[in-house]
């Protein structure tokens, strides 16, 4: 496969060639072409998490290298970009967790409220399944999604605002504040035996 054919080949074809001829020049060129197609999106995704060009570049390199090393585990059940998403997501989550293991959102804590950051409390006090149930009962759809993106996807508030297309100057911040008030109330009631 020459350079023109590689440029015209589908992601699936490039994966097949890269896996079949992993150590050959052709296989490496196919892998390089394949990952090169997605390098921009990987960088942008990483930048959303770390919000720093150099850190995002380092992270993107790790994602691309990890994808190349585990290319033979791609089973072709969904698009290559979907598979790459899971690698980028896991790598970014690991990076932000390592940098912020406690995850107490200082900005959210400026809201008058009792105790530490609600997300930390929630994650600390509730099993995941119990939280799903509690949130489903007390929060609307947007509040639930915003909370999940913040708590478990560790997405910055600005990104949640954009992703959920939340209008208004305060965007997702207001939605998360509303969610935290409702959940704290629900937790207090439950702990007080009122539910």
């Amino acid at each position: 496969m020459n350079a023109k054919e590689r440029a015209a080949a589908s992601d699936q074809d490039l994966v097949a060639l890269a896996v079949r001829e992993r150590t050959s020049a052709a296989g490496r060129a196919a892998a390089s072409e394949l990952l090169g197609r997605h390098r921009g999106r990987v960088y942008l995704w990483c930048h959303r998490y770390v919000r720093d060009h150099e850190q995002a570049l380092d992270l993107a390199q790790e994602v691309l290298l990890s994808a190349w090393r585990s290319l033979d585990s791609f089973q072709g059940r969904s698009r290559f970009s979907s598979w790459l998403f899971s690698i980028a997501r896991n790598r970014c989550l690991s990076a932000v967790r390592a940098a912020d293991p406690v995850h107490d959102d200082a900005e959210l804590d400026r809201v008058p409220d009792r105790g530490p950051g609600t997300e930390a409390v929630i994650v600390g006090r509730e099993e995941e399944q119990a939280l799903v149930s509690l949130a489903a009962r007390h929060l609307d759809d947007i509040e639930q999604e915003a909370l999940w993106l913040r708590c478990f996807e560790r997405m910055p508030v600005e990104e949640i605002t954009r992703l959920l297309n939340i209008p208004g100057a305060s965007g997702a911040r207001a939605v998360l504040q509303s969610a935290r008030r409702k959940l704290r109330l629900a937790l207090d009631r439950r702990d007080g035996g009122e539910t």
Partner: peptide, 15 residues
């Protein structure tokens, strides 16, 4: 499931 909807939104944004 709000959790999976949120994950799906993130996925669709990425791809």
């Amino acid at each position: 499931c709000a959790r999976c909807r949120a994950l799906m939104r993130a996925h669709d944004d990425f791809v």
